[in-house]
Computed example of a mutant assay.
Amino acid sequence: MLYMKFMSYLILLIMVLVSVAFLTLLEQKILGYIQIRKGPNKVGYMGILQPFADAVKLFMKEQTLPTVSNFIPYYLSPVFSLFISLVCWSVIPYDVGLLSFKMGVLFFFCCVGAGVYSTMGAGWASNSKYALLGCLRAVAQTISYEVSLALILLSMLILVGGFDFGLFSEYQRYLWYCVVAFPLGLLWFVSCLAETNRTPFDFAEGESELVSGFNTEYSGGGFAIIFMAEYSSILFMSAISVILFLGSGVGLLLFYLKLVFISFCFVWVRGTLPRFRYDKLMYLAWKSFLPVALNYLLFFVGIKVFIEMMIMYCMKCSML
C-alpha cells in the first residue's frame, strides 16, 4: 500500500512538471494574442513542442558560478524552492486517497512559510548587492501577504470546522464559497498573485532597477529550476483557490477546467495590468487587506457562535 502511494505521488509530480511546461506555452500564447501577435508557432504543430525546446535550451546553457558566492546555499536554494513547491501538492484531497491527511491546512501553512527561506538563501548566497536587495524585498512582500492569506483561510476554516481540505468539497455541494464570501475570494486571488510574485506584484524580479532580482547570479539549470518552482506554485495556488471557493470533487474533469481557468486569470492579469509601486504594495497588504480579512474572520466567528447558541437553545426548549 505504501509502495502504491509512493508511485502515485511520483506520477503526480511528473504530471505537475509536464503541466508547468505547458503552462508556459499557454502563457506565451495568451500574451501573444493580447499583444496582437501569434506567439510560439514554429516548434512542432502550432508550437506544441516549444516548452520542451525551452527546457533543453535552459539546461544546456553554461552554468556560471560567482567566485565569491557561498557555494552550498547558492546551489541548494533553487532545489529547495522546487522541492517545497512540489511537496505542497500532497495536501490536494484526491478521491483516490493519494496522500490526503487531516491536517492539510497546517501543512500548507508550513510549506508556504518555508518557501521564503529559499528566496532569502538564493539572494544572500549569491553575494551580490542586487541579488541581496531583491531577496530582501521579495521576502518582505511574501511574508506580508502570507498574513492576509492565513486570515482568509482561517475564515474559511471557521465555515467548515476542520483542517482537512477535503471538507471544502463536501460543504460546497450546493453553494460555492465564492458566493458566500465574494470579497474574500477576490482578496485571496490578489494575495495569490503577490505570493507567487506575479504581475502586477512581480517585485522579486525588478529588471529596471535590480538587473533581475534575487536570481541575478543564476543561469542555465539553476535559473530553470527557479522558473519551474514559480510556475508549479502558480498551478498549486490555482488548485487551492478552486478547492476553497469553487468547490468541486477533486478528481473530476470540472475541477481541472476550473484550475485552468484560474491559471488563465493569472496570465490575463499579467497581460493587462502595469506593475505596482512597492510602497503601494505594502500599503495594500497592511492597510487594506489585513483589516478586511480580520473583520470577515470576526464576522464568521460571531455567526458560527450565534448559530451554535441558537441550536443549543432549541435543544433545551425541546427537552422541556
Rank of each mutant, 00 (worst) to 15 (best):
F59S: 11
F59W: 14
F59C: 12
M60K: 14
K61Y: 05
E62N: 14
E62L: 11
E62M: 11
Q63Y: 07
Q63F: 09
T64M: 11
T64I: 12
T64D: 05
P66Y: 12
P66N: 10
T67K: 09
T67L: 04
V68H: 15
V68Y: 13
S69R: 08
N70G: 01
N70C: 02
N70H: 12
F71D: 06
I72H: 03
I72M: 03
I72K: 04
P73V: 05
Y75L: 13
Y75H: 14
L76C: 14
S77C: 11
S77W: 04
P78Q: 13
V79N: 03
F80C: 08
F80E: 01
S81R: 09
S81G: 15
S81W: 13
S81E: 11
L82Y: 12
L82R: 10
L82A: 13
L82I: 14
F83P: 08
F83A: 15
I84K: 07
I84C: 14
L86Q: 08
L86F: 09
V87A: 12
C88L: 13
C88G: 09
W89I: 02
S90G: 03
V91P: 07
I92M: 02
I92K: 01
I92L: 04
P93R: 03
P93F: 04
P93K: 09
Y94I: 00
Y94S: 04
V96T: 07
L98I: 11
L99E: 01
L99Q: 03
L99T: 14
F101P: 02
F101S: 08
K102Y: 06
G104Q: 09
G104Y: 10
V105H: 06
L106W: 14
L106G: 07
F107N: 04
F107G: 09
C111Y: 00
V112K: 05
V112Y: 01
V112N: 05
V112M: 14
G113R: 00
A114P: 10
G115Y: 03
V116P: 01
V116F: 09
Y117S: 06
M120Y: 15
G121W: 08
G121Q: 02
G123D: 07
G123V: 08
G123N: 07
W124D: 02
W124L: 08
A125K: 10
S126H: 11
S126A: 15
S128G: 13
S128P: 09
K129M: 10
K129V: 08
K129I: 08
